[in-house]
Structures are given as C-alpha cells and as structure tokens.
Design a binder for these strands. Sequence first.
DNA 1: AGTTTTAGGTACACGACTGTATCTAAAGCG
DNA 2: CGCTTTAGATACAGTCGTGTACCTAAAACT
Lengths: 196, 196
Amino acid sequence: MSESRTRRRGKDLLDAIYAAALAEAAESGPGRLTMDAIAKRAATARTTLYRRWSDPMDLLLDALAEAHPVEQPAPGADDLRGDLIASLRLMVDWGFSTAGRAVMALLADPARDPAIVEALWERVFDKRGGTFTQTVLRHYAANGALDPARLTPVVLDIGEAMVAKRILDTGGAPDDDYLAAIVDQAILPAAGVRDA
Amino acid sequence: MSESRTRRRGKDLLDAIYAAALAEAAESGPGRLTMDAIAKRAATARTTLYRRWSDPMDLLLDALAEAHPVEQPAPGADDLRGDLIASLRLMVDWGFSTAGRAVMALLADPARDPAIVEALWERVFDKRGGTFTQTVLRHYAANGALDPARLTPVVLDIGEAMVAKRILDTGGAPDDDYLAAIVDQAILPAAGVRDA
DNA sequence: AGTTTTAGGTACACGACTGTATCTAAAGCG
DNA sequence: CGCTTTAGATACAGTCGTGTACCTAAAACT
C-alpha cells in the first residue's frame, strides 16, 4: 500500500470508508459485499475496519446514515404537472446516485433482514416529509387544487412505483418524456385531474 | 451422502438440480449463488454439475427456462374490475413462487448482465401474451369496453409496477384489499373508467 | 518535548468455494 | 448378459474472505 507520507484519521478516513462501502454495495450488491473489498477500495487496512464494525452490513448501514439526504422537491407557484415531473426527476437522480443504488440493492436482496430495512426507511426517508410525488401532491391538495380524498396511499405511490419498475426493467434512467407520460397518463388521472 | 440404493439420472436428476438452483437463488440472491450450495441442496456431487454447466449463473438460466411458465389471466364475461384484480393476484402468486423470487432477485442485482436480463424476458415473459393486467385490458379494449387509445405502455404497466413496489417495500404479499385499491384508484382512472 | 491514540501493515489459521482428476458402481442399452 | 454411459464420492491444490494478534509509526494532545 506504499504508506504515503500522510495518514488519514477521523472524519477524512471515515468519509473514504463510507464512500468505498457505498460504491461496493452499489456495484456488487449486498450479497457480494466484503470487508476486504471495502478496505481495498478505501486504501486502508482491514484491521481498521474491524476496529469499528463487526461485518460489512453493519458498516454499510452507518455509511447510508451518513450519506447525503435525498433532495426535497420544492413545489412552485402553480404548475402541478411540472412539479410532479420535477419530483420524479429528483427520484431518478437519487436512484442513480451511489447511495441510491446501494439502497435499492438492499431492498431487493432476497436475504434481507426486515429489521435492517425498517432502520433504513427511518434513516433515509422518514427524515424527509414523505416521498417524492407525495410532497407535491399534498402541497396542491392543501391549496385546494386537488381533492384530498383522492390522495390515498396508493395514489401517492404511483409515481414512485412506475419509476422504480422502469429502472428495474431497463436498468437505465427514464428520460423526461417517460416521466411526463407517467404524470399525464397515471398520476393525474388517478388524482382526479381531467385531461384534454 | 450415504449413497441410497437408487441413483437418479436424466430428467429426475435435472429436476432436482433445477429446483435446488431456483431455491438457492430465491433465498440467497444471485450474489451468493454457488455451485456448492446447489449441489448440497440437490444432494448430488459438484462434479455432476460441472459436467453440464460452467458456473452457477449458467445453471440458473437453464433452470428458469425449464420452470413452470407464468399462468395466463383468463378474462371472464363482463367483469373488468374483477378480472384485473384476479390478474394481479396471479402476478403476486407468481412473484412468491420460487422461480418468481429468483427472477426478481436477478432483475434487482446491481451486477446484472444486460444480456442475461434480455434472455430472461424472452424466456419467461415473451412466451406469454404480455404481462398480467395487459392481457385483461387488451381483452376489454377489443370488446369496445375500453378506449384503446388509453392503453399506452405506461397505463398497461401500472398494476405490475404498483404490485412490484409493494412487494419491494413490505417484503410480503399484498392482500386482496390492496390489489382492489390499485385497480380502483390507479388502473381504472388511468384507463378512463369513470368511478362512483 | 513526552504521551496517548489510532491508522497502516504483516502474518496466521480457518473456512468456503472452485475447478479438476480419479475411481466406483448404478442405470440403461443392445 | 456384457457394454456403455454417467451419477456418486473422494481428494487435492488454489483462491478468497474472515477474524485475530501483533508491531510501527503518524497524528493529536498536554
């Protein structure tokens, strides 16, 4: 490892380790996550990892807790459709970030521990005011532009579900046309907005 | 292994191996899939596996190709809503079968090979006449009960997306109430059916 | 400066999985 | 029945990850 002159410590070191853990999880999935690979990627000794964490999953959860939180959609003046598309775009961007891909790999792991999944939701999503389109839809319902009775859990989740499935199917990020189609053809009709 | 009196051969043996591969993939995910575990579960020698397949993924793909095909929704007389719910129920049942969980684990694997995913779609889904709700919606559109113009790719995929996300979120099978909510609150409005 | 903390590095024994070689005997054929 | 095919079993060397022990020296504090 050639022991360069400086030796990282504290936050610098932690950040490097967390970044390595997220990258490994995002690339390999939780099934192939190893202390060894994280240590190599972070250019530190395995010993250093074992001093703080007992296994790769333990480490990964800490890394996710420290990761940048998901950006909040900021509903604008009077553009429900545009704000919905923008909130889905936020979701797509997050989903393709290192942390996002690590989370999705975790959620889809057949060997996942329910307790871990729950902890994850608390740390990553519950900090924010709900999910992506949910924030926007609630905003316009509060303004009277939407019927609050239509905003059931199912309706609030349509956008997220469609984007997640699309990513699962194609493996790539949906473009704006597709996001607009989701909004126009699925979310708005379900929310009771009459279209042309 | 105690070498019981009889020795399996041909189809019997293959079936046992395929079942073991699917079970392993469904439980552990593709990342943790090993020749060793498959051989142990099928109660055969690793040697036997290496005679036919070069690695666990190769074996798994053959196993999926041989797996029972997904059941077809059979749209009935005149019950669009009921048929949609039934088709989603079919999807849920399939998703919790061994083969279904193996496929989902494959699709969600961050290290997945796009070529493998494509081969999978051809083998598992393209044999059938489209996806679950799609079959039903097309049937009623052909009968004039639905406007064919509303049946865009997005609309045809709403049910599948909602069910997939629900399974991902909760890890459990949605009950009929939830499936009905998906149909009433998401699919039917998007398909242009006026509700009460 | 001296002292404490802790990262970097080496080494080791252990287990899991790999891929191949080799032998045996059961299954299925004529 | 004799012959061919092939499943079952064992063995082995090699690789990779684990978890621990141990030493060293850099970083940070007094």
